[in-house]
Nucleic acid binder design. Structure first.
Lengths: 344, 344
DNA sequence: ACGGTTTAAGTAAACGTTTAAGCAAATAAA
DNA sequence: TTTATTTGCTTAAACGTTTACTTAAACCGT
């Protein structure tokens, strides 16, 4: 078998070997019908033989498009986001695109910095979940005005006219709260984190609606905002809250708050579900084997990622998709387990 | 404030505006001392004013280096890998590099495909954990011979002479097994997954060493290979094993096997730790709140990722680092919890 | 005043593609 | 037979940088 030269083989090499012009090589490889069938075959064969791989940067420069997208998310050590990435990746790979990953760590400054960089044309599109403390959205607007399509998922930015893939935060918080009420809770706290205006509002809204429907008066003090990190301070902060408010039900709105809540209850010697019932928004498979098994709001992470990617790639492929018209909501599912079973 | 033009601003634009040559712009921005201090300032100022961002593809093409690395891992919905990515990212961001992410889903074919693509010069380096069914390593060798530095972490490929960041699989399996033996187990099963020759061998070795030291004869039937997916079949498969072998201790070697094991035991009405003790290699924070809290081998995921990135970037920056000499082992930690407490 | 060095620029080629435009030969249409 | 069209290929410019080389002026020592 013929071996590839150790020095880079490019179109020039192929052209020389086959004694045709570089243009012929390029067109043959892109299956242009400028080129005769026989020549095409010879080019393709030789390219394979010499292990020719096109230089993506030359191609991107010339075509002014990169076959690359950016995935911008707050963090990655979170089952929701990692599952969403799986969904995105299922399309990216199939479309022969490449994905750059950027973690904002929930910092607006980093997010803005990343967007500034992307205005260079580095990517053909962006799939993102905004940072929790992003209030100013100029960086996003500017990239969009520069012609880079953006698709939001989960933590969307309502003020940007583009595709948004959400889950039914309002309704699932409503269902979760209703469930707690039906299990006998009278004093339910909503444990949330700083920022995320749109998600927060939706979940808070659903929570309040359920309370109202059950003639329970909502008290502001029942909503507590933790920092978006899993750490000892949050546990202490939550313990203090529980100690003071004595809730008999807790809705934890992000994944890592499940552990925080369980540990806080344990330290306070509160029994779940007898003393206090807990439901959490999380996709962790371990929910089923917790002590006790945790009632969860299971978000369609994979499907959200996948749908976001489908829209972006559909748009990039020139399909008649008006991103700003796409406002998709995929349902979350309340999975009831022992952490909310009615006591005796 | 002057607004950026809506059409792309490049060096030509700046050159025209400042009435200097393109070369001057380029040199000024790279702080060459070919250029006078005053001119440099004018260039930098104008670039900022017009929101100039260099085209990375033109730059990569010309410089034949991309300021981009590839992260190639089997999967991402796994706390070990996502934490490792956090570690990698902590360096990537700081070095102003970009990270392309590729998921092999443990498929050799996909992995080989990705490597073929990377031979185009798309990335300056690779950080990877090999797929479980990768036996043939030509794709890796070829990329390396093409001059792309590769750093392995966790699931390394022993036959490639380059940097490897591992954790002490042998020793931590040894410690875990010893711990189970000391807690009174006499019949310990090792639950593992297909593939991963080097990791598997190390963990199996540590497991056997502990058994031998405690005069327990090892039986091949005590090692069970599941598929590397969290699903119902694996639970059934493990149940069958437990039912047949009746182990009083289980060492689960990858994260998702924790849930599999717990559910299998639950379905078999086996009490952990009284009937059977369990320890699992996992980094999930929920380990502490499982029923019962799970004894884990906690791997230094973040540090492994970070170290891998440090080596790669050190090498790329031209520091005198001989990658093939770097064979680093970071310690895992056995975190003892109730799933292995001695019964009464 | 003269050669030599330093400073601060500019010129132009190169990186590897893609593609508009051109052209000769073959084929079809008249 | 002549004219148009198609086929199959080539030429050359362009994408936006970087950089080796050139140049012109200024400065400096003798």
């Amino acid at each position: 078998m013929a071996e590839a030269k150790s020095n880079k083989v490019n179109m020039k090499t192929l052209a020389k070997v086959l004694n045709v012009s570089i243009a012929t090589i390029s067109k043959a490889l892109r299956d242009s019908h400028d080129i005769g069938e026989e020549t095409k075959q010879r080019v393709i064969e030789t390219a394979k033989l010499l292990h020719y791989v096109p230089n993506p940067y030359a191609s991107s420069l010339r075509k002014r498009s990169s076959n690359t997208i950016a995935i911008i998310i707050p963090e990655i050590a979170d089952s929701f986001f990692s599952q969403a990435i799986n969904g995105i990746e299922s399309i990216v790979g199939q479309e022969k695109y490449h994905a750059l990953i950027y973690l904002t760590h929930d910092s607006y400054e980093r997010e803005a910095q990343m967007f500034a960089d992307l205005s260079s044309g580095r990517v053909d599109g962006v799939i993102m979940s905004v940072a929790s403390n992003t209030k100013e959205i100029r960086h996003i607007q500017e990239l969009q005005q520069a012609g880079v399509p953006i698709v939001f998922f989960d933590r969307v930015c309502e003020d940007i006219p583009t595709a948004k893939i959400k889950t039914d935060d309002f309704n699932s918080a409503y269902m979760a709260t209703k469930h707690l009420l039906e299990q006998g809770c009278k004093n339910i706290s909503l444990v949330t984190i700083e920022g995320y205006p749109s998600i927060l509002q939706a979940r808070e809204g659903g929570y309040k609606k359920a309370l109202t429907e059950h003639q329970v008066k909502h008290k502001e003090q029942n909503i507590i905002s933790c920092s978006n990190k899993y750490n000892q301070e949050n546990i202490a902060f939550l313990k203090e809250h529980i100690d003071k408010i004595k809730p008999d039900g807790i809705i934890a709105t992000v994944e890592h708050l499940a552990t925080t809540t369980y540990l806080a209850c344990e330290e306070l010697k509160l029994n779940i579900p007898n003393d206090i019932k807990v439901v959490c928004f999380t996709n962790q498979i371990t929910a089923a084997i917790l002590n006790p098994p945790l009632t969860t709001v299971l978000q369609p992470a994979y499907d959200m990622g996948r749908k976001a990617a489908e829209l972006l790639f559909g748009h990039l492929a020139g399909k008649p998709i008006q991103l700003e018209k796409e406002n998709i909501t995929l349902p979350s599912k309340l999975v009831v387990r022992d952490s909310t079973r009615a006591g005796d």
